[in-house]
Amino acid sequence: MTAQTDTEGRLVHLLTLQGLPRAALDALLDRAQRFAEGADARASLAGTAVCTLFFEPSTRTRLSFQRAAQRLGADILGFDAATSSTTKGESARDTLKNIEAMGVRGFIVRHVGDGAVAELAAAAEAGTALVNAGDGRSAHPTQGLLDMLTLRQALGADFSGRRFLIVGDVKHSRVARSDLHALRTLGAGHIRVCGPASLLPEDGTLDGCEVTHDLDAAMEGVDAVMMLRLQRERMEEGLVASLEDYHRDYGLDTARLRRARPDAVVLHPGPMNRGVEITDAVADGPQSLILRQVANGVAVRMAVLEALLAGR
């Protein structure tokens, strides 16, 4: 694994939340909270070039990183794999090195391959910073951070007495892995995970979690429910019998939500499959923080870009 910090503990890349010290997480979340409250960004990245290097489709992540970079005064270069030289066989490494040669020192990278962003970070010049915007099933650290910021705003910073529930396709979810790393680091008191056996990993990802296949039971008394997108391509693999069966067993509706604490909150990283993993009444209801997650994404990504690039 490429080092994320230098010898003085300063963040040089953000590749994963796994192993990141609590002090580093808290510092990023505290700064993001100030940005969320309207703190002046002071154009701290004026003159700095940042490239959104996305080899996979994205809406929220790409646009919120672009918005974050704009608010910090950075120059933003967009990259579209579909119209780039990758269609002619150019490797991701060569793409990065060529853009780096243009004076770009910040790269926000999304890639289909597990570990691909860390490999690119290892190839980058000293002083170039990479942010993992989602790689394969491995990690999506800024999504994990914005989820934690949203939870802190709703529940307070002390997670030790809280119960958290993650529901759905954990096996294929980089978001779930980043959320689990962050929740453990921030001292979550109790983490439950619920989903069909075919969509839960067996690689140690769920160590220390209460694992169940009964969503009704899992909902009892939780403070926060974190729904995951059912990746419809898993239907073709036969991992789910049907969308209707999945919704019946693992969809969140208002009746199920009543089993949680009265003030429980609902999160979803998007894009949502309405009527599959979540109903309209819940997604648009008073306990939903889904749009706040999106808003917090800009603040979190500002904090990350500032920490990595300001003053370089």
Results as ranks from 00 to 15, higher is better:
His111Phe: 07
Glu125Asp: 15
Ile99His: 06
Ala126Tyr: 00
Ile108Glu: 02
Val109Asp: 05
Gly134Ser: 12
Gly89Cys: 08
Phe107Tyr: 08
Gly115Lys: 09
Ala118Cys: 10
Asp135Pro: 04
Glu90His: 05
Asp80Gly: 10
Gly89His: 01
Val117Ile: 15
Leu96Ile: 04
Ala133Thr: 11
Ala92Met: 15
Val109Met: 06
Leu130Lys: 07
Glu100Met: 13
Thr128Glu: 09
Ala116Val: 13
Ser85Glu: 06
Leu77His: 06
Asp94Lys: 04
Phe79Val: 08
Ala81His: 03
Glu119Ser: 15
Ala124Pro: 00
Gly103Asp: 11
Gly134Glu: 07
Lys97Ser: 06
Gly115Ser: 14
Gly106Asn: 07
Asp114Lys: 15
Ala118Glu: 12
Gly134Cys: 12
Ser91Glu: 09
Val131Arg: 06
Ile108Gln: 04
Leu130Val: 09
Asn98Ile: 07
Ile108His: 00
Thr87Gln: 15
Leu96Asp: 02
Gly115Asp: 10
Ala123Lys: 04
Arg93Asn: 01
Asp135Cys: 11
Gly134Phe: 03
Gly134Ile: 07
Met102Glu: 04
Glu125Tyr: 01
Phe107Ser: 11
Ile99Phe: 08
Ser84Ala: 13
Ala116Phe: 05
Gly134Tyr: 05
Ala121Phe: 02
Gly103Arg: 10
Val112Asp: 12
Thr86Asp: 01
Ala74Trp: 00
Leu77Arg: 07
Arg93His: 03
Gly89Phe: 02
Gly78Trp: 00
Thr83Arg: 05
Glu125Met: 05
Thr83Pro: 00
Val104Thr: 15
Val117Tyr: 06
Val112Ile: 05
Glu119Leu: 15
Leu77Gly: 11
Gly115Asn: 10
Gly106His: 04
Thr128Leu: 08
Gly106Arg: 01
Ile108Cys: 12
Arg93Gln: 09
Val104Glu: 06
Ile76Trp: 00
Arg105Lys: 15
Ser85Phe: 01
Ser91Trp: 01
Ala81Arg: 11
Gly134Ala: 13
Met102Asn: 04
Ile76Glu: 09
Gly115Tyr: 03
Glu125Lys: 09
Arg105His: 10
Phe107Asp: 03
Ala116Pro: 02
Glu125Ser: 15
Thr95Asn: 05
His111Glu: 10
Val104Arg: 03
Gly89Trp: 00
Val131Phe: 05
Ile99Tyr: 03
Glu119Met: 15
Ile76Ala: 07
Leu130Asp: 06
Ala121Met: 06
Ile76Met: 14
Ala101Lys: 02
Ala126Met: 02
Ala133Asp: 14
Ala122Met: 08
Phe107Lys: 09
Asp75Gln: 13
Val109His: 01
Asp135Phe: 03
Val131Gln: 08
Leu77Val: 14
Phe107Met: 14
Gly134Lys: 10
Ala123Gln: 11
Ala82Gln: 14
Gly113Val: 12
Ala129Phe: 00
Val117Thr: 12
Gly89Arg: 04
Asp80Asn: 14
Ala122Glu: 13
